[in-house]
Design a protein around this nucleic acid. Structure first.
Lengths: 343, 343
DNA sequence: AAAAATTATGTTAGCGCAAACAAATGTAAC
DNA sequence: GTTACATTTGTTTGCGCTAACATAATTTTT
């Protein structure tokens, strides 16, 4: 029952205390806080004074129980230490806070369907009003099958095949632009170091790169598959550095591109004189690398903002499938240049 | 009252529904879920079967209201897009989840006392059981004065002067080690590019650097103050690059060190032959820079784990002040070398 | 000035759960 | 078989808040 029946700890003020102090009913206090325009200004002032003097804060759990709404949104995230996810989470949090929502997070160990479902279930039992899934993994979209239909849900950067609203970056477009940029510089073809299998971004960047090559009628080299880490970029970069006919590499993210740059340098191949390298993400460091990196900038802020707005619409009852696509921007720096004459 | 009085939407199962199906009282269902050992195995089995068949999930808001505990912890964070904070947040989330706690976050615009207080207040009104403040800012520790004494609170990486438990990285020790490493390499003295004023890490790294120099009886140069960004490192690095007597620079984080490396290169000064540079943080990219960066590794994972454990103790009623210090590790790479003979 | 419309406030009840106490059932001791 | 005790289950009540309805105070209309 009362959590501190025996204790004497000063119980914090509740609605009734405020009501008593202001000389009104509890309901009037409630209205003062939730629909101030329905209370006469002088009454309102008295109530607010009482609220202030008692340091009253409404108990959200009780409000939640009474209204069935919590004012909390859930975010399911995978590896929020990465730049993209943390930037997206940050944007979502800011947008939500501006609209009076709090954020609960659930971080996943692995991006399989089971984990995602578990994350969403965990948040649901916290009575969140809606959930945003920021798991840029193919499995993410499949999660809906596992859910109660009643839940407002938005998925960020997952595939578009599912009957859920999706907000995504135009990965394929960005990849195609970067690839096209390299072809425009006179390179015969462009090699690609991709992210790990299973990630939406991996598939779409491969696809954008491939379609750009095909559109230009160029040969499509074999894809080398990394894991987003500088280490993997370094390892795969070494392999490409050995092939003298490789003059342009489009790397699926900036961290791997960093590893590639190092591998090329170690192999004595100059960037961009011998080999051009383009990355993806435009993490803050990119402009200060040696050489600075040509890359595709993603607007994570917009991604988060749109995800929140879309979720808001869902919670207000709109249904149907929506896909919002956020554009990218090619940032040309030092790491890309004209193809060498020699070849 | 009932949130969906008029609607016909299938209300999800509640305790009473489960009880009816299992042929027991609501209380027995509650016990089956919260204290299974106090229910006879056969009854328990019947109840669990009913739970499963109805897809029952307990309403956390109601439980919260009845018990006064929420099973939710709040984390107040500042700029979670930075490596340190996001890694710490991740570690906290993982530790909390393992122990059955959910995490609510509040991100701050600015790290002043008012914002922090607002963040904590916001989380309190969500009825969190405890709060971890991850705002590596001097102002963070002062926040306690603004709070109800009843709240379990732990502060990460803030100053130690306050009557709150604090978990912190041994910034000063790490800075002293890095500085000592440079002195050992024969440098006459070490210059320092610090973080912005107001950050705990800034003050402590300055202090560690200064004490190492003083202990060795070396002159203490003027501190150059940056803002953690590569840009500021670049700007300040240019100033140091102009002084030929500068042979060793300890930079307060890796991102600024990156800017310094670029500035030195642009000025024609070689690293490490002419100038040695050491950073702080060991972000994942550091090993692949050109040259790879000697830096001080922080263990954010341990930081988060300890913060959670300390908070758990607080929530169990322990009081008094505690300070836990997490050690650092110097990672020597290419950017530091022996002092040039010339001088 | 009385009736009607409007606005402001109060009363009641219940959201779903678990604490406290009460009762019933089972087990052990004599 | 009865008393003493432990174990299991049930009943009541209230956590703090707000939806819905009820009533009082005010303004507008006739």
């Amino acid at each position: 029952m009362a959590p501190n029946r025996g204790r004497t700890r000063a119980r914090s003020a509740v609605l009734r205390d405020v009501a008593a102090l202001a000389g009104v009913s509890a309901m009037t206090v409630s209205r003062t806080l939730n629909a101030p325009e329905r209370v006469r200004p002088d009454t309102r002032a008295r109530v607010l004074a009482a609220v202030k003097s008692l340091g009253y804060r409404p108990n959200q759990a009780a409000r939640r129980l009474a209204t069935g709404r919590s004012g909390v949104l859930g975010v399911v995230g995978f590896d929020i230490t990465l730049h993209g996810p943390s930037a997206t989470l940050y944007a979502i949090e800011r947008a939500a806070r501006r609209h009076g929502y709090a954020i609960s997070i659930a971080c996943l160990d692995s991006a399989d369907l089971g984990s995602i479902g578990e994350g969403v279930r965990g948040l649901r039992s916290q009575e969140v009003d809606g959930v945003i899934v920021v798991v840029p993994h193919e499995a993410a979209a499949g999660v809906v099958r596992d859910l109660h239909p009643g839940l407002a849900l938005v998925v960020v950067d997952a595939g578009t095949g599912m009957p859920v609203p999706v907000v995504m970056t135009d990965q394929a477009g960005g990849a195609a632009t970067a690839t096209g940029h390299l072809l425009d510089l006179g390179h015969e073809t462009v090699w690609h170091i991709s992210g790990p299998a299973g990630w939406t971004a991996t598939r779409e960047r491969v696809q954008g790169w491939r379609s750009a090559l095909e559109a230009a009628g160029r040969p499509v080299p074999e894809v080398l598959s990394g894991d987003w880490s500088p280490q993997s970029g370094h390892r795969l970069g070494r392999r490409l550095a050995e092939c003298p006919h490789v003059t342009a590499i489009f790397v699926a993210n900036d961290q791997m591109a960093l590893g590639v740059l190092r591998a090329l340098r170690e192999a004595g191949r100059r960037v961009p004189e011998d080999v051009s390298v383009a990355g993806f993400d435009d993490v803050p460091e990119t402009g200060y690398l040696r050489p600075s990196l040509t890359t595709v900038r993603q607007d994570f802020r917009a991604l988060g903002d749109h995800a929140f707005r879309l979720l808001l619409q869902r919670m207000e009852g709109e249904t149907g499938k929506t896909v919002e696509v956020i554009g990218t921007e090619l940032v040309v720096r030092e790491s890309t240049g004209r193809a060498p004459r020699a070849f």
